[in-house]
Computed example of a mutant assay.
Amino acid sequence: MSYVREDGLAQARRRRKRRSIIVLIIAAALVVGAFAYALGYINTSGSSDPAASSCAVTTTSPPQSIFVLNVYNASSDTGVANRTATAMESHGFNIGTISNDPYKESLSGAGQIRFGPKGKKNAVEFVKKYLPGAQLVQDGRTDDSVDLVLGDDAPVIKSAPPTTATPPPGCDNVVQ
């Protein structure tokens, strides 16, 4: 068996070659990792401005805006129906007629909430909480509208505080 002895220069060349290969492999791995990281920020929704699409403020209409709420005054006070209708509109209701009670009743209690079979859920779920002492009265209407009839003891319904749509954090300077 023959043993070939290498001189120091050949060993140095081999080490330098090994180091170069290792450095190239690490550099290639970093480039591939940076490319994959950058792909995570590409917007796939088709918008040219990725910040605008992620910072869009969406607003949804409240469920009580899907039916018409008529507000009637059956009390001895004047202007109660107008004030209440304005307050209910600020809470997201779709206001229809504002007038004196068409049945010309004079109610001494909190009032009545009148509805048809299709509007019972709307009356109980959305309107009743604003006039808790009101009497629920089902009538013969065929649509889902609800009448809010205010009596002498009807509570004052306050307007909802104004809401401002706030963008998500990091979207303060995005022009929409």
Rank of each mutant, 00 (worst) to 15 (best):
V4G: 11
V4S: 12
V4I: 14
D7L: 11
L9H: 11
Q11P: 07
R13H: 10
R16W: 04
R18H: 13
R19K: 15
R19I: 06
S20T: 06
I21G: 11
I21K: 15
I22C: 07
V23Y: 07
V23P: 06
L30N: 06
L30T: 05
A34K: 05
L39V: 05
G40K: 12
N43R: 13
T44Q: 13
S54Q: 13
V57W: 05
P62K: 14
Q64A: 02
Q64K: 04
Q64E: 11
S65K: 02
F67C: 12
F67H: 12
L69C: 03
Y72N: 00
A74Q: 04
S76R: 15
D77Q: 15
T78E: 09
T78N: 10
G79R: 07
V80F: 10
N82F: 13
M88F: 06
M88T: 03
S90Q: 07
S90H: 04
G92N: 03
F93Y: 01
I95M: 05
I95Q: 09
G96S: 06
G96F: 01
I98W: 10
S99Q: 13
N100F: 05
K104N: 14
E105V: 14
S106L: 14
L107V: 04
G109D: 04
G111W: 03
Q112K: 14
R114G: 07
G116K: 08
G116Y: 00
P117C: 08
K121G: 11
K121Y: 10
E125S: 15
K128T: 08
Y130L: 10
G133L: 03
L136G: 00
L136N: 02
R141K: 12
R141F: 08
R141Q: 04
R141I: 03
D143R: 03
D144M: 06
S145L: 05
V146C: 01
D147C: 01
L150Y: 03
L150G: 09
D152F: 10
A154N: 09
A154V: 06
A160C: 04
A160D: 10
A160S: 13
P161E: 00
T164C: 04
T166A: 14
P167D: 02
C171V: 00
D172W: 00
V174K: 01
Q176V: 13
